[in-house]
C-alpha cells in the first residue's frame, strides 16, 4: 500500500510540475486560471493520498472546502478578465474590428 501511495504521489508531483509549466507559459490569464484550477484538483488528490497514508480523516474538511470553493478564483478571473492580456491576439482582434 505504501509503495502504491508513493507511486501515485510521484505521478501527482509530475502533474503539478507540468501545470507549473502552463501557468508560467500562459499565454493568457485565462490559461493560467484554468491551470490553477487543475492544480487545485491535484492538491485535493494529494491531500486524499495523505489521508489514506495516515489512515485519518483529519484532512477531509480541508478537502471538502477546496473542492467547494476552488472554482471561485477562475470564475472571478473569467468574469472580470478584460478580454485577454495576450497582446498579439488583442491587436489582431482590433485590426479585424477596424477593418
Amino acid at each position: 500500500m505504501t509503495v502504491v501511495l508513493y507511486v501515485a504521489g510521484g505521478m501527482l508531483l509530475l502533474a503539478a510540475g507540468l501545470l507549473v509549466v502552463r501557468i508560467t507559459a500562459g499565454p493568457t490569464i485565462l490559461d493560467r486560471s484554468m491551470a490553477l484550477d487543475v492544480m487545485m484538483s491535484v492538491m485535493v488528490c494529494g491531500m486524499s493520498l495523505w489521508a489514506a497514508h495516515q489512515d485519518s480523516d483529519a484532512a477531509l474538511p480541508a478537502i471538502l472546502a477546496l473542492a467547494a470553493i476552488g472554482f471561485v478564483g477562475s470564475v472571478a478571473v473569467a468574469r472580470y478578465a478584460n478580454g485577454s492580456d495576450d497582446v498579439e491576439a488583442e491587436n489582431d482582434q482590433q485590426e479585424e474590428e477596424n477593418a
Binding site: 502504491v4 501511495l5 507511486v7 501515485a8 504521489g9 505521478m11 501527482l12 509530475l14 502533474a15 503539478a16 507540468l18 501545470l19 487543475v38 484538483s41 491535484v42 488528490c45 486524499s48 493520498l49 489514506a52
Partner: peptide, 12 residues
C-alpha cells in the same frame, strides 16, 4: 488511487 492519479497526470 493509482487510476485517479493517472487521470490527474493525463489532465496535466
Amino acid at each position: 488511487l493509482l487510476v485517479g492519479a493517472g487521470f490527474a497526470l493525463v489532465a496535466a
